[in-house]
Write a protein that binds this DNA or RNA. Structure first.
Lengths: 204, 204
DNA sequence: AATGAAATCAAACGATCGTTTGAGCATACG
DNA sequence: CGTATGCTCAAACGATCGTTTGATTTCATT
């Protein structure tokens, strides 16, 4: 279809969509290359193996998402006037933006699949490429919620993570009402998630 | 006749564990039957197909889980003195109990996998066998939270579902501290989840 | 135009998948 | 006892999987 894009990019885009729909094992290289309009052998030529392709699909979006989240966090972390909502916005808004621009509408669903997979190698890869972000956010949450024990804080962050991952994996489907502009709809969605997460984190 | 029931049960138990670990497509019938100590052909003989086996794995636990949840809900639904915590307890406690007795420790992880799968036939099956439970709980939530619009309520229930599914899928791993009895640990876990869910549902 | 590296292609590789087969075994009933 | 029925078993089926191969095409550089 998109013959202007490079073969590598077309494979990555088709893989992202197919992984979101059928899973990492359910999507075959033959379906994938047919959808991308490239030869079957192109995957092993450009990526070496299917497992490497899976990692590259994650890296392409995750590097961007991590950078945006950390940049947003840096602007509020440590400041005395920073609120819980500010930190949550730094975590949530970049994911929402990724879903609407940059063509990453299906990536959050791929990420949710990866969270559900309890495969060790995939979890290790995610931990190496995602863990430092969660760690920095956790530090800031701990600063803003000093009344919580470490155990209590980890519990709540885990639950919030589950809620947000679940919700964001549905972004591909949820359609805004036609009488609301996209930017308004995105603001409303962000407000929903932020208020829910703040309530779950800071309840007495 | 009795030996067939034994073979069936062994297949179901091995399938539950292997589906939790490797996913529905990742677990092969050869791994599965080897783990169960039965012949390869036994799956197709007793269940007809692998897809039918997947459904039977769900049915075995889901029928019990649904029955317990609805029974607990029935005891509190509609009563004027019922609180949000009561309804949430009716939803959460049966899942916790299933994880600790009856050998269903891995089932919640299988269920979480199924939620992450966006496969149409599996979602249809879950909707048919799980939807009526969610519908009854939603009705009771709506009664106890009359200040929320329908749209707002659905948003919050969806987020709570994501959080609980995520948390419960980890039950197989989380170990209680040795100085806490299992029943105390279960109570503490239930209290965590109920308070978090109540905060997320009822925040201003 | 000639050259050589990079990219694409059709075809085939061995492995593994879910499923089927037909013979053999067990147990219950006339 | 003989036989029917339910179950188990090793073996094989065709299909599909990820991967590899070697020839061919593409294309920038000389």
């Amino acid at each position: 279809m998109n013959s202007s894009a490079s073969t590598k990019e077309r494979i990555l885009t088709a893989a992202e969509a197919l992984f979101a729909q059928r899973g990492f094992e359910g999507a075959s290289l033959r379906q994938l290359t047919a959808a991308a309009g490239v030869n079957l052998a192109a995957v092993n030529y450009h990526f070496g193996s299917k497992d490497n392709l899976v990692e590259e699909v994650f890296k392409r979006r995750l590097d961007q998402l991590n950078a945006r989240r950390l940049a947003a966090l840096k602007q509020v972390a440590g400041h005395p006037e920073t609120t819980l909502d500010d930190v949550l916005a730094a975590f949530i808004r970049p994911a929402l933006d990724l879903s609407h621009d940059g063509g990453g509408g299906l990536f959050m669903r791929v990420l949710a699949r990866a969270f559900a997979e309890h495969d060790d190698s995939l979890r290790k890869f995610l931990s190496e490429n995602y863990g430092h972000v969660m760690r920095q956010f956790t530090t800031e949450f701990a600063r803003l919620l000093p009344q919580l024990s470490k155990e209590e804080l980890y519990w709540r962050i885990d639950l919030v993570t589950g809620a947000l991952t679940h919700a964001m994996s549905g972004f591909g489907i949820i359609q805004r009402k036609s009488d609301v502009s996209e930017i308004t709809h995105r603001e409303q969605t962000a407000a929903h998630l932020i208020r829910f997460a703040a309530a779950g984190l800071s309840h007495p």
